[in-house]
Each structure stands twice: as C-alpha cells, then as structure tokens.
Write a protein that binds this DNA or RNA. Structure first.
Length: 790
DNA sequence: CAGGGCACCT
DNA sequence: AGGTGCC
C-alpha cells in the first residue's frame, strides 16, 4: 500500500512515500520529502482526489530525531483526520462530502460481505434433508465446529466440546466433518457464483466472501438517474424502518439491493442461506454483516461508523486484532476500541512499528483502505490430521501415506504442478506449547511432480512419502522417544505448466476441441480483469456468462481427463485474447473503466516524461505533481528554492488548479458516459431457479454469442487503464501486436510495485510480489476446478 | 484453546 | 521456518 522511493535531481533528493489506493484509483496521497543541500526539508502533502490542494510544510533540516518522528506522526494523522471520532459531533462535521476541504475520501466504495449461515451444517443438511428437522452438530474430533439453528435453540454453540454439547442436548445428531471435500466444493461454488456477477471477489475462509460492487453501483446510479424513490433492502444499522434516508446514501442503498439479489441467487442456485453486510470498506462490511442472523442483511451508513465500532465489547472483536495483538494492546492499557482510538500514535508506533501501528489505529476507527482482491485458486493445498498420539516411525509413515493419497488426488484435480512439499508436525509437550508447529520443506523433483499431474498418483504418493520421511527425520530423532499430535502435508508453489514445455498438443488440441475454448477464455479474461482492477460493468449479461462458465467446467473436466494440458490451454486462451489487435471490430471503450482521477494523474505524466535530467527515474518523476515537475525541469530550479527562501515551520496552503467543487459528483465521471449496453440487472425472476440439490450445469444452457463480445470487451479493459498518459492510444494501436503486448506487460508490472513494495533499489525490485501476482491471475484460470457438477 | 484449512509477513 | 491472523 505504501511505497517509498526517491529520485535525484541535481542536488535535490526527493523522497516520496506513496499511499495509493489501487482499488479506487481515486485516492492518491503522496508525501514528498525534498532535501536540498541538506539544509531544509520540504514536506508536501498532496491529496489528488477530494482535498484538491497541496500543502507545503517547510522546516529546518537540523531538527532532532524526535521532532522528525513527531512531525511524521502528525502528518500521518492528517490522513485520517476525516474519520469520525467517536463523538457524533465531529462525525457530522467532517463526515459528509460537502465541500469541506478538510474532509478527504468519503470513500465512495460499496463493499459487500457475505457470510453463510452455519456453513458446514447447511451442506450436510443439503446432502441429507432429513437432518433439517433435527438438532445437528458437525463434529471434528471432539469438537462441534458448527451446528444448525435447531441445535442452537437447544443451547449448542460453535466450538463446543462434544461432551458438553451432548450434555446440553442429548438428542443432538452428529455428523463427522473432518473431511472438508464437500464444504470446499460448495464454498468455491459460492465464490464462483459471485464472481460471475463481478470478478472482484475475495474469499475469507470457506464461508465468507467480500465483494467490491462499486462499479456495479455506479453503473446503476448513472442509469437510473438516482430518481426513483429507492429504499434499503434489509436492515440499516441503528435505524428503524420508519426513517427513509436512502436518498442520502444512494450508493449504499443500491448496494443493499445488489446484496439482496446476490443472496437470492445463492439461495436459488445453490440452496444456501447467508447474511450480508453492506458498507464502505471491508472491515465495516464484515462487522455489520452479523448484526441480524441468520439469513438477513444489514447496511452500515457512514454516520454510524462510530456506533458500530464503539459497540464492540473488546478489541479482540476487531478483525485483524488477534490474541497476541490484543494482549500486547492490553499491556499498554488498552482494552476497548475507544482506548485504541485515543491512544497516542507515537506510543503505538514504538510498540508495533509504523505500518502496524497505523493499521491498528485505523481499524479502531473503522478505517480500512485495503482493496478487495480477487482470491482466485488457492496458493497451497494441504491435508492434515490430528490425533492423541503417534510415536512410531511406522505409524508416521502410514499416516503420511494416508494424508498424501488424498492430497495428491486433490492436487491432480487442480491440474497445477507443485514445486514445493512441506511436512509439518506438532509434538506433544507438557509445557503449554501444544500449539507450536515445526515444519521442513523441500523442492519436489520434477519427475515426481509430473507424476501428480499426469495421473500416476500411486507412484507419486510413494515417492513423496519417502521424501516426507526424510523431512521427518530432520525434525525428529526417531531413535529417541517422540510423541506427535498432528501431521500436515502441504503442496505449495503451484505452477501452471507452460505450453512450450508440453509441446504435444496444448494449443492445437485446445482449438480443435469444439466448443470449450471460447468458454474457457471467457472465464480467464474475467478473472484477469478482476485482478487488474478493471471493471465489472462489462458483465452485462451475467446469465450467459455465469452459465457458460458453469457449462465450461463440465467440458473442461472431461478435456482434462483426456489431456493433461487443459490449464495451460486456458492460459493461452487468455493471452491470445489479451492481444489488442484481436479486439478489432468495435470502437474501443477506452474511458469506460478509467476513473476520473486517473486522467488527472496521467496528465502529470505527459508534462514530465521528456527531457528529464540524467539520474532521474522517470517512473518516480511521473508521480510528482505537475507543479513540482515543472519546477524541477526549469533551468532555474536548482536556485529557485535556496535555503535562504525557506522559513522555518511555515505552512503554506496552495490551492490546486484542478479544484472544482462540483467535480466530485459521481455522474461527472467519464467512466460511464460511453456505456452502450444496458446495465446488468440482477433480477432473479429473469433467471431459472432450480431445486436445491441440483447443479446449475444441468439446468440451462445459454447461447455463446455474447460470450465473444464480453471477452473482447474484457481485453480492452484490461489494457486501457494501463496506458501511461504519455502514450497515444492511436499510436499504440498501430504497433505490432507483440510489441503492444510487451509494452502492456511492462506497464502492468510497474503498477503493482506502487501498491505493494518499495523500489528504492531498482535492482532489488519486487520480484516475489510480481511473481505472486502473476501466479494469482493464472491460477484464477483454474478456479473452476474447485467445484464440480453434483 | 479446540479442528482443518487458508493467507500474509518476516 | 515460524508466527500471526482469519474462518
């Protein structure tokens, strides 16, 4: 989220801390520290979206370290100065988006949080409807991990021991839930269903999903002209049905409608009920979603943020504050959310370090800028079992083989090839240290890895088992007594095999295999869009996309059985689609998914990219405000800010030339001017509904025509937003396709760098992050393997 | 805390 | 490799 970088221009050195919200691409906060001649420092706080002013703060360089820290902390605080502190008075002053210059980011995101009701129990009740009538508990070992609502009314709770559950409720029916296969499959069905409406879906565990529906909402807003007397679906936190305030919060109101429709879709297509929360960020959406349970939804309005935060009984209730953090906070004397809100940030920084401190404080304030990131396929697959005692190597081997055979089978269905194997154990020890685990990992030799994907699973299990035993002996001296209570086997570093290595008919078989290619492409382009922050508004006809995707799964599965190359086929399908010259027929919709401030941003690029002084990283330079760029470029710049002209501690407010009070309005955004298709309605009545235990794959088949259109639009979107401002799209379109692609991947790789990690040292780079991001998007191609037809 | 997963950070 | 966090 925050990246730091510097550039040298003559005798100036400019440090820039960037906090860029990639999700909205509308919030760019830049903090520059200019250090001319080591005598003065200029701190520049630039908020490009709503604040629309630039503040210079100049002070002497020779201030003490403490003073520096204090100033830094103060400056950081300015980021959250619009946050409603617990008193309603301050909230009402700074909360609304009225032209108060002091109030940044009304954060017009609309985030949904879905939370399925007693998920494991619901799955079991679908598998055996007779269980609906009885109190049902899902048992893992000696724990009831969840139970249905019949059981809850009889006093059974989550994570209760089997003994006390039976005591409370003797007629409790127990179903073993250690095998997660069915839950995992149903879980991915839910995620996939949500993704078919909007690819920006992030999983949290098996039963929760976040979804960023901002663009969907904005599209509806533009379409309906806000006119209709819209109301909220479901509950509104701390409001009664009497008051109608929907017109004050049209985005959230529309979000509540979308949430209701998606919950209905989940119910009609998958037979599952659940809760939803609607709010402006993930933290709040999650907190509010559980307000009314089960099977209800709640919207949180910005003016009630302090209410819901204040209502939390302890810091531990804040998502992101776990046991350890709560303890450390308690050691500082902090127990309530309000305590943390009011605690001096400097002290917090001392305890937790800068980033964590700021994060914790923001959490307490209900502030959460983290974007919804498409989860895609898992990055690791693991299988584990716990037990009372294993103390012989023979038993260890048997257990490992048992775990491996199910893990290898799952891995094979996935299609990717694991590069790393890890064995984890938990030893019994009297000293409270039950929880700590130890692990050893090693690379998987290629020939073994290949046996997994190619289907020689028996061989693979045997060889992996010997590998695992080697790792085991690195941890445990088997000549002495040992006592294990858990074994875990894990595949990670999952790689999609490239077509080049598998020469045999990856692409050709892909294209000759009748209908599946296009459908595969659809899904892959969608997921790619999701991870590249492009919009969802191109999903005009979700029905066709959802169902074609589902149908695709069945076909792809059979294809996978025939050829081991289905996944790279999907990947290549995407790459080909991605190539801009394929897009040909329709006029490009360049502006459609480009947020307003993006163009502001790019204009600074234009002015800056030529005739830079040597030694200047153009990437960094581009990010500077135009004024600064001009200044640095002007021949007189090096003498224009001599130390003599800097007065100590002086604060100067400079109105931004782009300031425009009306420019904030949603409808002003160029995003939606050129939308030519009607915006997607989620009207459930338009869709076929099915009985509970049926897979949608068998219900209906939609024609594939608009599939092509969507794919093309997707490819446009995935490219357009990446254009640096200095690039003329016309010129770009005339370049050879491969050059275009190369440029695009280059730009694409540069963008996440800003978001995640520093590139102070250009050589050091952010390879791991990039690799991970790339892996994520390609893994998304495989996501459909995580659910299969009944 | 349990239980069987996952992800992220260091 | 371990720790922390989430469900």
């Amino acid at each position: 989220m925050v990246s730091q970088q510097f550039l040298h221009v003559g005798r100036w050195r400019c440090y820039a801390n960037l906090n860029w919200d990639l999700q909205r691409q509308s919030s760019l906060r830049v903090w520059y520290t200019l250090r001319p001649a080591s005598t003065t420092t200029a701190v520049l706080n630039d908020v490009l979206n709503n604040k629309r002013y630039i503040k210079f703060k100049l002070f002497e360089m020779d201030m003490s370290e403490d003073e520096m820290e204090e100033d830094e902390a103060e400056w950081k605080n300015s980021f959250v100065d619009s946050v409603p502190l617990s008193s309603p008075a301050t909230a009402s002053v700074s909360g609304p988006s009225h032209s108060k210059t002091s109030g940044p980011t009304p954060a017009h995101r609309v985030i949904l949080h879905f939370d399925l009701d007693c998920f494991y129990a619901q799955v079991e009740m679908m598998r055996n409807p007779a269980l609906r009538e009885v109190p049902l508990g899902i048992q893992q070992k000696y724990i009831i991990v969840t139970c249905n609502y019949v059981a809850r009314e009889l006093g059974v709770t989550k994570l209760m021991s089997v003994a006390s559950a039976k005591e409370k409720c003797p007629q409790l029916v127990l179903v073993k839930g250690e095998d997660l296969t069915h839950y995992r499959e149903m879980s991915y069905k839910v995620t996939e269903l949500l993704m078919s409406y909007c690819p920006l879906v992030e999983r949290l565990g098996f039963d929760e999903n976040f979804m960023d529906v901002t663009k969907m909402v904005d599209a509806r807003l533009a379409e309906t002209q806000v006119s209709n007397n819209l109301s909220f679906k479901g509950h509104v936190y701390n409001h009664f049905s009497a008051d109608v305030e929907a017109s004050d919060h049209p985005s959230l109101a529309l979000g509540s409608h979308i949430a209701a429709e998606l919950r209905e879709a989940i119910h009609s297509k998958l037979g599952l009920t659940g809760c939803a929360g609607i709010a402006t960020n993930k933290l709040l959406a999650k907190l509010v979603s559980g307000s009314y349970k089960p099977n209800q939804q709640t919207t949180l309005l910005p003016e009630n943020v302090s209410d819901i935060m204040g209502c939390l009984s302890s810091l531990r209730k804040v998502p992101g504050v776990g046991h350890q953090t709560a303890k450390r906070l308690q050691a500082l004397g902090l127990v309530s959310v309000k305590d943390l809100q009011l605690f001096p940030l400097n002290d917090l920084v001392r305890e937790f370090g800068g980033p964590t401190a700021q994060r914790l404080r923001n959490l307490a304030l209900g502030v959460d800028d983290t974007p919804v990131t498409t989860t895609g396929a898992p990055q690791s697959l693991s299988d584990e079992d716990s037990f009372k005692k294993i103390s012989s190597t023979k038993d260890v081997l048997e257990k490992i083989q048992e775990l491996l055979s199910s893990l290898v089978e799952r891995m094979q269905k996935d299609g990717r090839q694991p590069q790393t194997f890890r064995l984890t154990i938990r030893r019994y020890s009297a000293t409270n240290k039950w929880f700590s685990r130890e692990s050893r990992q090693s690379p998987i030799p290629n020939h073994i890895g290949h046996k997994i994907t190619s289907g020689s699973t028996g061989d693979a299990v045997i060889q992996l088992a010997t590998l695992a035993m080697k790792l085991f002996h690195k941890m445990v001296d088997s000549s002495a007594a040992f006592h294990l209570t858990l074994i875990n086997v894990c595949f990670s570093n999952l790689q999609t095999r490239g077509a080049a290595t598998s020469g045999k008919g990856s692409i050709t078989s892909f294209f000759t295999h009748s209908t599946s290619p296009k459908k595969t492409q659809i899904f892959s382009t969608q997921s790619q869009d999701g991870s590249s922050q492009s919009g969802d508004i191109h999903l005009m006809d979700h029905q066709s996309s959802a169902h074609s995707v589902i149908t695709q799964h069945a076909t792809q599965k059979t294809a996978a059985a025939k050829s081991p190359c289905s996944s790279e086929a999907a990947l290549h399908g995407f790459k080909i689609e991605q190539s801009p010259d394929v897009a040909g027929e329709d006029p490009p919709l360049q502006e459609v998914s480009c947020p307003l401030t993006r163009s502001d941003f790019d204009e600074t690029n234009k002015s800056g990219t030529r005739r830079l002084p040597p030694n200047v990283d153009p990437e960094v330079f581009r990010l500077l405000p135009e004024e600064i760029q001009k200044e640095l470029l002007s021949p007189a710049y090096s003498s224009s800010l001599p130390s003599s002209s800097v007065s100590s501690g002086k604060v100067v407010d400079v109105p931004n030339i782009t300031e425009n009070k009306s420019s904030y309005s949603l409808t002003d955004s160029p995003n939606f001017k050129d939308i030519k298709e009607p915006v997607n309605k989620l009207d459930p009545s338009n869709r076929p509904t099915i009985a509970n235990n049926h897979s949608p794959a068998y219900v209906s088949v939609f024609p594939g025509e608009n599939v092509i259109g969507e794919g093309r639009l997707s490819s446009h979107q995935s490219s357009d937003c990446e254009f640096p401002g200095s690039v003329d799209p016309k010129v770009f379109s005339e370049l050879p396709p491969d050059v275009q692609r190369e440029l695009m991947t280059e730009w694409k790789q540069q963008k996440p760098v800003l978001k995640t990690t520093s590139f102070r040292k250009p050589g050091k780079g952010s390879k791991t992050k990039d690799r991970k991001a790339a892996g994520k998007s390609s893994q998304a191609n495989n996501l459909f393997k995580y659910f299969k037809p009944a």
